[in-house]
Amino acid sequence: MAQAANQLAVTLGISKAEQDAWAIASHQAARSAPVDHIVELLGVSNDPFTRELSERHCARAPKVSGSISVANMSVAADGAAFVVVVSSQWAKERCAKGVDLLGGLTIGGNPEMPGLAPVEALNQTLSSLNICRSDLRSVEIMEAFAAQAIACVDGAGIDPVIVNNWGGSLARGHPIGASGAVLAVQLFHRIQVTGGLGMAAIAAAGGLGSAIALSL
């Protein structure tokens, strides 16, 4: 996967400096994120993965493949998340705190460029729901690699200002098999604050891309 991420960076001209800057910003966002939702989710007062990442740290970080280093790729982590989908009537009767699931899909992409699979998933979801990119208030994009996150944000035409505002997988870790649910849960908490429309998207090995749209 690191080799695929590096090839993606080479193909799209994403420099190591850009990747490192994205990773640094992800850690900064995670460290300044509201604590309440972390306490609620994890039962802890801080996230042990986040750190004061700097350009100096990135410069000396061991390289994994080309421009991919241990500083601009996510950390493998243990983790879990679950999402419950119920009818609006069920939630109303129980005064449950929730958001509306507007739609989403999973599609297959180029297996040689798996990091780009979420782009088409995002685009098709937006199109099917007649949602303009300018209507989005919050977006959660998988950060297995900084290069992959940058490529998806640029490819889908999403404003990076609204992406992963509470830190992504580069700062919080990448629990294989749970990361999609983690993104959905993170988006759930973010739109409780920001309101409006939000989307989450993730890539999977083999070229699969998934996206969902939520609203408060």
Rank of each mutant, 00 (worst) to 15 (best):
Gly104Ala: 02
Ala61Leu: 09
Glu140Pro: 00
Lys97Val: 14
Ala201Ser: 11
Pro118Phe: 06
Asn72Pro: 07
Gly195Phe: 08
Val193Asp: 06
Ser32Arg: 05
Ala61His: 07
Ser69Arg: 01
Asn110Tyr: 06
Ser45Ile: 04
Val83Asn: 10
Asp135Pro: 01
Gly206Leu: 03
Glu55Phe: 09
Ile202Leu: 15
Ala33Val: 01
Ala4Ser: 13
Thr11Ile: 01
Ala17Gly: 03
Arg172Tyr: 05
Ala171Gln: 05
Gln124Glu: 10
Pro62Leu: 14
Arg60Gly: 04
His27Thr: 02
Pro34Glu: 13
Gly108Trp: 04
Val84Met: 14
Asn6Met: 06
His174Tyr: 02
Gly196Val: 13
Ser69Asn: 08
Gly173Ser: 06
Arg133Asn: 04
Glu52Lys: 14
Ser128Asn: 12
Asp36His: 10
Leu12Met: 13
Phe82Thr: 15
Thr11Glu: 15
Phe188His: 02
Glu40His: 08
Leu208Ser: 15
Pro175His: 04
Arg31Asp: 02
Ile150Asn: 00
Ser169Arg: 01
Pro118Cys: 11
Val10Arg: 08
Leu105Val: 01
Ile176Asn: 03
Gly180Val: 03
Lys63Tyr: 02
Gly206Tyr: 01
Gly168Arg: 05
Ala200Thr: 08
Gly79His: 10
Gln186Gly: 10
Val163Asn: 07
Leu136Thr: 11
Val10Pro: 06
Ala77Lys: 09
Leu41Asn: 12
Val84Asp: 07
Ala200Lys: 08
Gly206Trp: 04
Met1Leu: 14
Ser54Arg: 06
Arg172Phe: 03
Glu18Cys: 00
Glu143Gln: 11
Gln28His: 06
Val153Thr: 15
Gly66Cys: 08
Arg60Phe: 09
His174Ser: 01
Gly79Cys: 06
Ile141Phe: 07
Ile150Ser: 03
Met1Asn: 12
Val83Ala: 09
Ala147Val: 03
Ile107Asp: 04
Ala80Pro: 11
Ala146Gly: 07
Gln3Met: 07
Ala76Trp: 08
Ser26Cys: 00
Ser210Ile: 05
Arg94Gln: 06
Val185Leu: 08
Val119Cys: 05
Val185Asp: 01
Asn164Trp: 09
His37Leu: 12
Val182Ile: 13
Met142Ala: 15
Ala61Ser: 13
Val44Ser: 04
Ala204Asp: 13
Val83Met: 05
His189Ile: 08
Glu143Cys: 13
Ile158Glu: 10
Glu140Asn: 04
Ala211Tyr: 03
Gly173Phe: 11
Ser134Cys: 09
Ala77Arg: 02
Cys132Thr: 13
Ser32Phe: 03
Val35Asn: 00
Leu102Ala: 07
Leu187Cys: 02
Ala181Met: 08
Asn72Val: 10
Val153Ala: 07
Phe49Leu: 15
Gly207Ser: 09
Thr106Val: 12
Gly157Asp: 11
Glu143Ser: 03
Ile24Pro: 11
Arg56Phe: 09
Leu170Trp: 05
Val139Asp: 12
Pro118Ser: 11
Ile202Ser: 14
Ala91Cys: 01
Val10Ile: 10
Ser134Arg: 09
Leu101Cys: 04
Gly157Arg: 05
Thr125Glu: 05
